[in-house]
């Protein structure tokens, strides 16, 4: 267990480092900078602003300063003796280029909790509802109910989430008036957005649970369980589901990283100040530090969730040993 955690920690650091390097390179290869707007800044002002953000430094030095193995500040290599590490290594994601007077840490601290809360809510109901639909469909395989549930699940995948959001607003907010239309002041405001955000996940979960369970129910140990006289419900839930959940679990790892970091479309429709919009806006406006910041958050989430998936695998399938992962 400790070995597993240690290996994963090393892997996390390595992956995040590679991702940061790749994203840094990609951002800098793209022409245009955070200050190249329609209205050109006067040359002197531009030079001052760039100097403020160290954009006039050579790239390698900007990179080192951002990642921060040595604290490269204005004072040079050994200027500030109090800290050896700076930058990302010290947890400092730097100042935002677009939101003046804000650091990336502040922006993320304001927007990420909302996205995480909304995403957890969406994931929770997606797993519960999707799982229930999947089990029901697999348990009555080949019947009309199975067909209807599968069609419903496919529809959930086939519609873009902004369409689902529009439909939910139309029905529950505008026509029935059960829910507020937009905003983020009470729990009721989160119900519709989480439904729209979770709909495709629920549909995928339902599909995967169904196919995984159908496969598992044909296995030998299930036949044994039936043969020794266990009730069908126990066989399905205890023996079948445990093995049949494996594909769902491995899907949920990366999927929940996407859901937890928020969706621009959902946030725009429901007027929520979440983190999802930063993913698009920062890359579009070349807000280098913010774009790298959200990328780091995303890759950390992805890696940790994938490790969690591997851990859950060993719990679900006794043939997989933690030591081998």
């Amino acid at each position: 267990m400790i070995g597993f955690l240690r290996r994963r920690a090393v892997g996390l650091v390595l992956t995040v480092w590679i991702v940061v390097t790749c994203a840094f390179a990609m951002m800098r290869i793209v022409p245009g900078g955070p200050f190249s707007e329609e209205r050109k800044l006067p040359a002197a002002v531009l030079a001052n602003v760039e100097a403020r953000y160290h954009l006039d430094w050579p790239l390698w030095r900007q990179y080192l300063q951002y990642v921060g193995p040595l604290n490269l500040d204005e004072h040079g290599l050994f200027g500030d003796r109090e800290r050896v590490f700076g930058g990302v290594l010290a947890g400092d994601l730097g100042p935002s280029f677009r939101y003046r007077d804000y650091t990336v840490n502040q922006i993320l601290a304001e927007s990420l909790p909302l996205s995480l809360a909304l995403g957890s809510l969406a994931l929770a109901w997606a797993v519960v509802l999707g799982g229930a639909i999947g089990v029901a469909a697999a348990a009555c395989r080949g019947t009309k109910l199975d067909l209807a549930l599968r069609l419903g699940a496919a529809l959930g995948i086939a519609l873009p989430n902004f369409v689902v959001a529009g439909l939910l607003v139309l029905v529950f907010a505008l026509t029935l008036g059960w829910s507020p239309i937009a905003g983020s002041t009470s729990f009721a405001h989160f119900v519709l957005p989480s439904l729209a955000l979770g709909a495709p996940v629920a549909a995928y979960v339902a599909r995967l649970v169904r196919s995984g369970l159908v496969e598992a129910l044909q296995a030998d140990w299930v036949r044994t369980a039936v043969a020794k006289g266990l009730p069908y419900r126990t066989v399905v839930l205890r023996h079948g589901l445990r093995a049949g959940l494996l594909p769902t679990v491995s899907y949920l790892g990366p999927a929940s990283a996407g859901v937890l970091t928020g969706s621009l479309v959902i946030e725009r429709i429901f007027a929520l100040p979440g983190a999802g919009s930063h993913f698009v806006a920062s890359a579009l406006s070349r807000d280098y530090t913010l774009a790298l910041g959200v990328t780091i958050v995303y890759s950390v989430l992805i890696y940790s969730l994938n490790s969690l998936v591997d851990f859950v695998y060993t719990r679900l399938d006794p043939r997989i040993a933690l030591e081998e992962l």
Binding site: C22, V30, P31, T261, F279, L284, Y298
Partner: peptide
């Protein structure tokens, strides 16, 4: 794996900007 851990929108926008600019 590395490309998997980069957000999809980030990849698309960077690539589009690269050719658009």
């Amino acid at each position: 794996d590395v490309l998997y851990s980069l957000p999809f929108v980030f990849l698309v926008i960077t690539a589009l900007a690269l050719v658009d600019a």
